[in-house]
């Protein structure tokens, strides 16, 4: 692997990854989201992965909202 970036190696491979174990990608209503598992056992959206700009206007996909089934 060759990284072509002005960042130093320490910036990229720095900290303990254990703190991020509760994050995962999942499919919610046909859209891919990056979500974080909360202490209550629910998932909170961190990032929406979509190319459709209208998806970003949907309040249920805004970062921070809890995923409802």
């Amino acid at each position: 692997m060759i990284l072509y970036t002005p960042l130093s190696e320490v910036d990229i491979f720095g900290t303990d990854p254990e703190a991020f174990n509760n994050r995962q990608f999942m499919n919610v209503h046909g859209r891919l989201v990056h979500a974080e598992r909360t202490a209550e056992g629910t998932y909170r959206i961190l990032q929406l992965m979509s190319t459709d700009p209208q998806d970003y206007l949907d309040a249920s996909f805004t970062p921070g909202s809890v995923i409802s089934n």
Partner: peptide
């Protein structure tokens, strides 16, 4: 952010 390819980068990126 970083363009991630063949190797998964640590999650703080």
């Amino acid at each position: 952010g970083q363009v991630e390819g063949h190797v998964q980068l640590p999650p703080q990126n």
